[in-house]
Write a protein that binds this DNA or RNA. Structure first.
Length: 463
RNA sequence: GCCCCCAUCGUCUAGCGGCCUAGGACAUCACCCUUUCAAGGUGACGGCACGGGUUCGAAUCCCGUUGGGGGUGCCA
């Protein structure tokens, strides 16, 4: 265990996907661990058997790796599994009981509800506190919340005070003998030497309870930091049911990890100047909890996309072509794609769009009827195509600039501008009205295929 | 209900008592460029929730109101 620097931790519970909010929390911890020369500890909180599947862990690891949180880095430690520390949790529970910080209670949730209703109170009211019950089947262990208040010193929000009168005697060990989150979480943090707990704001109300456990166990609580949650358009906490929260989904749609990381880091935090697109190293050196905003931030997919476009445009031609590769069908010729790639690069927001932009090159034409109706029904379409077929047949220098010059020559008698004149050719060859630059596309498609498409389209015009 | 947190353009944010006529980015709109669509360039639109204080001076400090969020489990 590396104890030379601060020890941060990321403690997700395993689920079938990796939440973008969790990604941000992980990133915050990772940035801090890196910049302080500390350690990032990964602990899988798998105590709830209902959600404990081994393959989920691989998902967490690969998601972290995608984010640049490298499990083979010396800064990284783990993964640890909470479930394998159950004995320690229970030992701590015993200590708490023996030292008078906790007591056993045999009331069931139903009992509590009934009695609370009868007495007109909201929750558990410490009814078994002084019964002196010994451990036994069906009994839970509860923490005896003392009089007074707890002040949580939070690096993001400052001091937050909780009056103990509003904190009920919470459960530490279930009636089936298993430890509850608040206990397990604290005991693990203690045994793993965690010094800094940085997590989402939803944990803030747990913090006084956890801090009481730390104190009762005679240990100095860690430094806390609660960052605001991520919300949807309705300003509700991002949820799996309503919202697109799976990191994997964004990855599969062709969001670059660098763009995702950059976007997530600048959600609720800024470098302090007017820049938002920043390399990770700079983010790391600048990031500070005190600069994190205090209000929930809307996870805006549109802005994420804008970041992604930005990152795509920053790539070199080679990087871009390589990045496109997984999104292209296997039988598409890569050299052909590379020839057109520089022209698709500024037109992409996500990589999942790439094949749709250049498919006409590889798959042949499929006419978009709206496009066809728009340009092929004009008087000039047929004669323009006739001329193009004639002139392009005679070309022996099949290059974009030459093809452009020829069309410009053809269009003169028609009194058209290039924008109008290229339209019929574009629809004939690509099937659509929009796409990559036309003459460059023709060059890549080649002379005979271009001519064949031109002739086919000409034949389709009824006149 | 109770507890806690929060409050600058539609959104993400800069601002930490005078540099603010409130800056940037996304989105939207217009124009320029142009080989369609993008990209790029220029510009426009648009905000300190409200009310009291404190101060010579408040987006910045204090209080209240309103609004939003989180929590209130033998989930994590």
């Amino acid at each position: 265990m590396n104890s030379s620097g601060p020890r941060f931790r990321f403690a997700p519970s395993p689920t079938g996907y990796f939440h973008v909010g969790g990604a941000r929390t992980a990133l915050f911890n990772w940035a801090l661990a890196t910049s302080t020369g500390g350690t990032f500890v990964l602990r899988i909180e798998d105590t709830d058997e209902a959600r404990n599947r081994p393959e989920w862990t691989d998902g967490i690891l690969s998601a972290l790796e995608w984010l640049g949180i490298d499990s083979s880095s010396p800064t990284f430690e783990g993964p640890y599994f909470q479930s394998s520390y159950a004995d320690e949790h229970l030992r701590a529970a015993d200590r708490l009981f023996e030292n008078g910080y906790a007591y056993y209670c045999e009331m069931s949730p139903d009992d509590i509800a009934q009695r609370a209703k009868a007495e007109g109170v909201t929750g558990y009211n410490g009814w078994s506190r002084d019964l002196g019950l010994e451990p036994g089947p069906g009994r839970v262990l509860r923490f005896k919340v003392p009089e007074g208040s707890t002040i949580v010193r939070d690096q993001v929000r400052g001091d937050v005070e909780f009056d103990h009168s509003v904190i009920e005697d919470f459960v530490l060990v279930r009636s089936n003998g298993t430890p509850v989150f608040n206990l397990a979480n604290v005991v693990d943090d203690m045994s793993m030497g965690i010094t800094n707990v940085i997590r989402a704001e939803e944990h803030l109300p747990n913090t006084p309870k956890q801090q009481m456990i730390w104190t009762a166990l005679d240990r100095e609580p860690p430094v806390w930091g609660h960052v605001p949650v991520l919300v949807n358009e309705q300003r509700k906490k991002l949820s799996k049911r309503r919202d697109k929260v799976a990191l994997e989904q964004y990855r599969d749609e062709g969001i670059l990890s660098d763009a995702m990381v950059n976007y997530l880091m600048t959600l609720g935090w800024s470098a302090g100047d007017d820049r938002e697109i920043l390399p990770w190293d700079e983010i790391t050196s600048l990031f500070a909890l005190g600069d994190v905003n205090l209000s929930p931030a809307f996870f805006d997919v549109k802005k994420l996309a804008a970041f992604n476009g930005e990152y795509i445009r920053m790539m070199s031609e080679d990087e871009f072509a390589a990045a496109c590769d997984p999104w292209l069908p296997d039988d598409w010729d890569r050299a052909t794609f590379a020839a057109i790639a520089p022209h698709v690069q500024p037109r992409l927001v996500t990589f999942s769009e790439v094949s749709g932009v250049v498919d006409f090159i590889f798959n042949g034409v499929e006419y978009d009827e709206a496009s066809w109706d728009k340009v092929m029904t004009t008087d000039v379409a047929a004669p323009l195509l006739d001329e193009s077929i004639l002139r392009y047949s005679a070309v022996d220098n099949w290059q974009a600039d030459n093809l452009k010059a020829i069309l410009e020559h053809i269009m003169e008698p028609f009194g058209l501008k290039l924008g109008k004149a290229q339209a019929p050719v574009r629809v004939a060859v690509t099937g659509r009205t929009v796409g990559p630059p036309l003459f460059e596309s023709l060059e890549v498609i080649g002379q005979s295929e271009t001519l064949s498409r031109l002739r086919h389209a000409r034949g389709r015009i009824s006149t």
